[in-house]
Simulated scan of single mutants.
Amino acid sequence: MSVTNLKESSRKQYSEAEWQIRIDLAAAYRLVALYGWDDLIFTHISARLPGPDNHFLINPYGMMFDEITASSLVKVDMNGEIVGESDYKVNPAGFTIHSAVHEVRHDAACVIHLHTAAGTAVATQEEGLMPLNQTALVIREQLAYHEYEGIALNHDERPRLQKDLGDKKLMLLWNHGTLALGETVADAFLGMYFLERACEMQVASLAGGKKLHYPSDAVKKITAGQGETGLTAVSGMAWKALLRKLDRHLPGYAD
């Protein structure tokens, strides 16, 4: 069988809706790698599938993020059981975190969790994300915090993570990393991009060793309101641009 026929055969296993979600999720993995946010084979991104079964897709545990394709993603149920066939297992900690979110946040079509240097650095600073710049102010009111409880292997942690997340779209996991969710893969990725950029800016600002200038409370409130709807409004346009970038630098994600 030719490579083209193998691809077509693989694609026919899935509905059109599932295949598009697989393409977008694989693209998100590749973009995380492209931006240098990956952590070997660790951390994870998930996407909820349509339908009553509450299935979601997550990475095959053992693959680097720049290797992941639409057809290689693993489908799991809310008990962590793999649906269908896969040569790979699922990261147990990844299942704990993502199942916790998908269980209660049905608006979360995509959930991204990272361990970047800047994101983890800010998650280790007592102040959390500080109101230092426009990027932070846009997202700061959408940010929740969850206490570190060790590697997320204990399913008993899920109710506490759910409670801490509430209705927020972003989270700092203390001493651990960052988390973002969205109604689409594009929304989640743009939210994570702004959170990671804000963390990078904070680390750079504090490293400068100079007295910091803070915006007024009135400006903080205005900017937070602008960010509430602003990111969703532009996520689709940004996503198309990101896919064009990915096609230039890491093609093959749609296989």
Rank of each mutant, 00 (worst) to 15 (best):
T223A: 02
P50H: 09
N54C: 06
T232N: 12
G62W: 01
A218M: 13
G230L: 03
V234W: 08
E18Y: 04
L143G: 05
A121C: 15
D24C: 00
V32P: 06
H102N: 08
A224F: 04
M1Q: 07
S9E: 14
N54L: 01
L172V: 06
I41F: 05
A121M: 07
L190E: 10
L31F: 03
V74I: 07
A121T: 13
R11V: 02
A109D: 08
H213I: 14
S15W: 12
Y29T: 04
R105Y: 00
A233Y: 11
H146I: 04
E103M: 06
S10E: 15
G150E: 11
D24F: 01
A241E: 05
A180K: 11
H106E: 13
T184D: 07
A241K: 10
E149K: 02
Q20Y: 04
A26S: 15
A144V: 11
H55N: 12
G119W: 06
G208D: 08
A233M: 03
A198R: 08
Y29S: 07
E67M: 14
R30F: 04
A121D: 09
S99C: 11
S71D: 13
H44G: 05
A180S: 13
D255K: 14
R140I: 10
E81M: 04
L25E: 10
V104K: 14
A33G: 09
F42V: 15
K168Q: 14
A123H: 06
G236Y: 00
G94A: 05
D247M: 03
D187Q: 05
Q202V: 10
E18W: 01
I45Y: 12
P159H: 03
A241Q: 07
V111W: 03
R140W: 01
V234A: 13
A238R: 02
R105G: 01
A224M: 08
K169C: 02
N5V: 05
F194V: 14
K220Y: 07
A100T: 04
H106V: 08
A108P: 00
K210R: 14
L114Q: 05
A204C: 02
G94S: 08
D38I: 00
A108W: 10
S71H: 14
A238W: 02
R48S: 14
L172R: 10
H113V: 09
L143W: 01
M78F: 15
D167H: 11
M63N: 04
T120S: 09
T135Y: 10
D39Y: 12
L143Y: 00
L137Q: 08
L195Q: 01
L34C: 01
K210N: 05
K12F: 15
M171C: 11
E157F: 02
K89I: 10
K245T: 10
L243P: 14
W19Q: 11
L73E: 13
A100D: 09
Q202I: 03
A144S: 15
W174F: 08
D39K: 01
N175L: 12
